[in-house]
Design a protein around this nucleic acid. Structure first.
Lengths: 330, 330
DNA sequence: CTGTTAGCGCATTCAG
DNA sequence: CTGAATGCGCTAACAG
């Protein structure tokens, strides 16, 4: 069913049908009526591709997420999609997978679909390959990174100061009398390295010697992974007093490990996660966590992208501040 | 940058460029070389909309999810997207929101984008309005529902027998010596009503009188909501011995409520959730749960949709069997 | 082996 | 107020 089919049956020209569809003025009432009846009769819906072709605009926004199973990323995507959908854009979100070349390739796919704006979710997109792909394929399309940044004229970033946030966590633990601390990295994302940097800075500021700044890295970012690494840490360093994890999901595995080993939290061991996710509210004791304010981050990202879509200024770098939510594990 | 721009600079016709792009045979090696060099030079990527228009095919698959924040739905979407992307389709997933008219409207949006296949995630799409919208807008496009079904010639459903699954949960609790049981409904989806039905059937089969089949419904599907309703249940029925929740997320709220009220799990109170989600592994004690095998469900859904995309048979109804994973809460 | 022509479905001139 | 003609970027059929 095309406008021509409708036009023929209505005994008018295709352009008239087009005018009716787009509510253009200057159509006789009866003609408009007649056409509209037919449109309804055949459940006619214009082809977005054809319309986009002639209008030179797709009204499409791409949201790229490395892994849509990661809770805090879908939370963000939800907020952003809501806002942009309200503004008349059609948000298509896609999972790229962790491989760098695939992430870059999805930039190409977005060019192919002629998106008018892009959201990049998470610091995992802060890579050379992605940067090059943007330069190649989407050098003029407004792009906003959530918790990440790339130095390109059309890319904006909304980031949270997780480094100083983690430093504050270190301070909190010291204030609670815990000074022998470890840091657990769940995956090698730029954001996580920033967190680790904050940990090291905090420890140094407290006069801890370099060899007593304990850093651990895990194989798999999961509850089980958090469990395993925590057991290992407790074996290697029986006198440890506190652990900071890059992500709640992994920290709750640590809570369980402590429980199974008969180590009381927070008395003997204090635990802190990051993200202020639902996981931290489930476990017993409830997890102290660094709130990186993803909700606010996402809203800002949506706003900045909207401005970009409307042709306003680009390439902002917005910084937000994280804060500790102290619960039962410290 | 269009094929015409490339063609002009290469001194050939547009169709030649098109042939090179699509690896058509019968092009002189040098010509192909010359064109390819230019394609690379300008990072040329064909416009999917224009190509789709003339090829009468979009290679687009739509995945509709009511709320992308719901973990088990994104888990499913992840699996399906992986499979279909591997087959050369471009998956666009969108969050519809809970309102019935919005869900129906997204069917229209998918028609507008001329998708070639659709995944509907969850039983929430099992509504009159969605059914009508499919009849109106996508009567010929293969559609697969994950854990749901609509009786339409182009719609297939992969569903899990959660009703008999819940009945098995009832049996388990009776086997553990628990006979005074309650059922908690977290939201009014068809799947949840099926679960409740299974609960009632199971109770009746054990000779429980109708007035002793306790059913509760909550306002908000969340950990806190599960906490609140559990406190309420324990107040109203101090002698209760077991609770089955429609979803793990809510059940873990119940675990916490029991903990705070000093009620030992599972000795005095047994708790069961549904979904076999990560939440159940986090809480202490670990949650016994009904595994509805979403992974398998999703893989089957992807396979069926793929067959539909390839023009094979449609409108299957595939049933899978859930099974109890007993952990520490029963 | 390559160029010319036509048309996918639509919106937008420009005439009338 | 409406129709005919044109072109968006691309592929395919047909010539040559």
């Amino acid at each position: 069913m095309t406008i021509y089919d409708i036009a023929r049956e209505a005994g008018v020209a295709a352009s008239t049908v087009s005018r009716v569809i787009n509510n253009r003025p200057g159509i006789k009432k009866e003609t408009r009526q007649k056409v509209q009846t037919l449109l309804k009769k055949y459940n006619y819906i214009p082809d977005a591709a054809a319309r986009g072709l002639v209008m030179q605009s797709s009204r499409l926004v791409g949201i790229l997420i490395v892994d849509i199973r990661v809770a805090h990323h879908t939370e963000s995507a939800f907020v952003i999609e809501q806002e942009l959908t309200r503004r008349g854009y059609c948000c298509i979100t896609m999972g790229t997978g962790p491989r760098d070349e695939d992430k870059a390739d999805y930039i190409r796919i977005l060019e192919q679909r002629r998106v008018e704006g892009v959201i990049l979710m998470g610091s995992m997109f802060e890579t050379e390959a992605v940067q090059e792909s943007i330069k190649k394929h989407l050098p003029r399309v407004p792009i906003v990174m959530v918790n990440g940044y790339l130095d390109l004229p059309n890319v904006s970033g909304v980031i949270v100061d997780e480094d100083t946030g983690v430093e504050k966590c270190v301070n909190l633990l010291f204030a609670r009398g815990k000074s022998r601390l470890a840091f657990v990295l769940d995956s090698r994302s730029p954001a996580n390295f920033r967190k680790q940097q904050g940990f090291c800075d905090g420890m140094r500021r407290h006069g801890v010697k370099e060899e007593d700044i304990w850093k651990y890295e895990m194989k798999e970012s999961s509850v089980q992974g958090g469990y395993d690494i925590t057991v290992q840490i407790l074996r290697e360093r029986p006198d440890i007093q506190g652990i900071i994890y890059t992500i709640d999901l992994v920290a709750v595995g640590g809570v369980r490990a402590a429980y199974d080993m008969g180590i009381s939290v927070p008395d003997r061991l204090a635990l802190i996660g990051i993200d202020n996710s639902i996981y931290g509210e489930i476990c017993i004791p409830k997890l102290t966590t660094l709130d990186n304010r993803l909700q606010d981050l996402s809203e800002s990202a949506a706003t900045i992208l909207r401005e970009g879509l409307e042709g306003k200024v680009q390439s902002k770098k917005l910084m937000m501040f994280s804060e500790i939510i102290e619960r039962e594990s410290t």
